[in-house]
């Protein structure tokens, strides 16, 4: 006995009531619950839909869907970071490695030759702060728009807006005081090279996350999930 469309909708509401807000997670859970309920109803047609649903839900254990959400979030973050790492490594292989070293060398020279190093570092920090803020703002608007238009929230989108957990580490704001403090000291060549490398690699990770991995993941999601295309 196949479940009706209103019953499937009821399952979506059920998952939502059990703290699963994200459509991409709900979809899989709804299908699982529906399969289990249909199997029970085939064996015992006198069983009510609600009672079969309760039996299926209990199979998820005392934590309900929490473990699934938690692990799914971790898995999405890991997938995001693995992609960032994959593209980051490309910048240390030919031909991109030439560009990486050229940028480090260029920034090092700027630090050496520009008299007022403070302004150079301040502008750099501002740029490294501006692009992520612009990204978070645009993503936030996109998520709100998508929720308004389709009524759906995607866990995948929430991973993207947090850059797979990297937004915690790659926030230049944390390092600004240290970077600007360096300016007051007399820096030797090694420290200047380290500082240039840090700034360039920091910028590379941000660039890869925002402009390479995020669009790639969106495309992947659109290929996988028919409903995502409408977003």
């Amino acid at each position: 006995m196949k479940l009706t469309t209103p019953q499937i909708q009821q399952l979506y509401t059920f998952t939502q009531k059990h703290y699963v807000d994200w459509y991409d997670v709900q979809t899989e859970l709804v299908d699982h619950l529906a399969n289990g309920i249909e199997f029970q109803l085939e064996g015992n047609p006198n069983l009510t839909f609600e009672s079969a649903l309760n039996t299926e839900f209990k199979k998820f254990g005392i934590m309900g869907f929490n473990d699934v959400i938690e692990e799914k979030t971790k898995a999405l973050n890991k997938h995001y970071r693995l992609l960032v790492w994959k593209y980051f490594k490309d910048f240390f292989r030919l031909p991109k490695v030439i560009l990486t070293f050229f940028l480090i060398w260029g920034y090092y020279n700027l630090l050496v030759f520009i008299e007022d190093r403070f302004w150079l570092l301040l502008i750099t920090c501002f740029i490294l702060l501006f692009f992520p803020i612009k990204f978070f703002y645009k993503q936030g608007k996109l998520i709100k728009f998508s929720k308004k238009e389709t009524g759906k929230k995607w866990l995948f989108e929430s991973t993207v807006i947090q850059l797979g957990g990297l937004s915690q580490i790659f926030n230049i704001g944390i390092y600004v005081s240290i970077i600007l403090d360096l300016e007051r000291r007399t820096l030797n060549t090694t420290t200047l090279i380290i500082l240039s490398s840090f700034i360039v690699l920091f910028g590379l990770v941000l660039y890869i996350s925002i402009y390479i991995v995020t669009p790639k993941l969106r495309k992947q999601m659109a290929n996988q999930h028919p409903e995502y295309k409408f977003v």
Partner: peptide
């Protein structure tokens, strides 16, 4: 179910 889906997602 609590073990299967986390494993699949991983």
């Amino acid at each position: 179910e609590g073990a299967l889906y986390p494993a699949l997602h991983k």
